[in-house]
């Protein structure tokens, strides 16, 4: 199964070694600080970090009176570019049905699901430095420890990150942090809502975060070529789609206004992610 991936030679070999050894060294040095304690708590059963957050989450739901009062017509998002955003939404919609979806059909037919899961794990693991930087920038040292432990475990026992051993065997759940969240953590507002061509829903803050993260991606460190990055990004997109094939079509099927539905899901999801930081 892994043979299919040995052609990851698009990454020149030397920098890879250099990169991985630097990163693993960093991991080992910093792991001692916080991660040992974190992983032992996380390892108790499957109740990982997601489950630990439950208390505050439930309180938040009960305190959320948005539907109780009469302020229902109050607008809680800022979308002055809606007409343009809707054009891009349509563009992405066409892109989905004309390009992504057919591409996914071929991709899914060629690669079995467990291989696609592995590809997803690899892509995810490769981006670990971004998550490490952003957990550190948000002073979330326990999470930084978990990110490093996951990287160390999955890059070794997980065979270059193709398997998620850290979650399966050690119960260390993935942490998702990006620069958009870091900005939010430090109080930067989300700005206007954006529906970007190809990329999809975003807002001003997250778009800045997206570009920043793209520049801190290890990929750039190896091959500073737009086409390669774009190809890598496309692989990521198609692979994700192949693992969750119905999402977009369901959104369209169940929504009366898919543009509004997607905007709401995106903005509320991101707000929740950033709120978690206050714990």
């Amino acid at each position: 199964m892994l043979n299919k991936y040995n052609n990851c030679e698009f990454i020149a070999m030397d920098p890879v070694k250099r990169y991985f050894s630097c990163f693993i060294l960093l991991v080992v040095l910093l792991t001692a600080s916080g991660c040992a304690e974190k992983s032992s708590t996380a390892a108790i059963g499957e109740s990982s970090s997601t489950m630990e957050q439950s208390d505050d989450e439930l309180d938040m739901l009960l305190d959320d009176d948005f539907l109780d009062d009469e302020l229902l017509d109050e607008i809680d998002y800022y979308d002055p570019l809606e007409p343009i955003n809707r054009v891009f939404f349509e563009f992405n919609d066409k892109l989905y049905y004309w390009v992504l979806s057919p591409l996914n059909t071929v991709y899914s037919a060629v690669l079995p699901q467990d291989v696609r899961f592995s590809v997803g794990h690899f892509i995810n693991n490769f981006a670990a430095p971004i998550r490490l930087i952003n957990t550190l920038l948000q002073l979330k040292f326990n999470d930084a420890g978990a990110v490093m432990a996951r990287f160390a475990i999955n890059s070794t026992l997980g065979v270059y990150g193709f398997g998620d051993v850290a979650w399966r065997e050690f119960g260390i759940a993935p942490r998702e942090e990006d620069f958009g969240q870091t900005l939010g953590y430090w109080g930067v507002g989300e700005g206007i809502y954006l529906c970007l061509p190809v990329i999809g829903p975003s807002n001003l803050r997250d778009a800045v975060g997206f570009v920043t993260d793209a520049y801190s991606h290890p990929m750039v460190f190896f091959v500073d070529d737009f086409l390669v990055s774009a190809g890598y990004y496309s692989l990521d997109r198609v692979n994700l789609l192949s693992l969750n094939p119905d999402i977009y079509e369901d959104l369209k099927k169940y929504s009366l206004d898919p543009y509004v539905s997607m905007r709401q899901v995106y903005l509320d999801y991101r707000r929740k992610k950033i709120d978690d930081n206050d714990e």
Binding site: L67, L72, L256, V260, R263, Q264, V265, Y269
Partner: peptide, 21 residues
Amino acid sequence: YDLNIEGVSFLRNYRDQFKSI
């Protein structure tokens, strides 16, 4: 009357759509 998955409320989602319509 509502359910919430990772911060996304099903009711709020439809409410926003209806408001726009």
